[in-house]
Amino acid sequence: MDQHNWSWTLKRSFPSRRNAHLESMEEILGQLTELGWSDRELFGVQMALEESLTNAIRHGNKCDESKHVAIECKVSPERFWLRVEDEGPGFIPEHVPDCRKGKHLEACGGRGLMLIKAYMTTVEYNDRGNRVTMEKVRGEQSSELMDVSS
């Protein structure tokens, strides 16, 4: 990944206020548009940005404005790479119930992680569970997305 020729990078942190992520998100989407990413591809990237950043603000830092969300992003005509870290205690992704099954289908939350996984090529969490790293390689589809596209 480090050898990749990135066109643009962003590193910033912001206080955990509702909607504080929107400006960074628009900036990243604007860069990808200039690099030729299609509307359809941008939809998936926006979903991953929206869900990971609001998870960090809302669930990680509990909307505590004294805590920050750190964001690092790299983009190129071929790849989108994102790392989001909050100051919360972290969580265990495997313990989050599958939103598609049983009573969880009707739950009002719990879909963000599934959507990130569906739209990204790779998604990884650190051991503490307060940092997520994801990458989208253009032209590669996750199994979740292939299941619904077929």
Binding site: F43, M47, C99, R100, L105, M114, L115, V148
Partner: peptide
């Protein structure tokens, strides 16, 4: 189609 895909991924098409 993009929005329908979100419903399909999350199986909300069943709800």
């Amino acid at each position: 189609p993009e929005i329908y895909e979100v419903f399909a991924i999350t199986k909300l098409t069943k709800l």
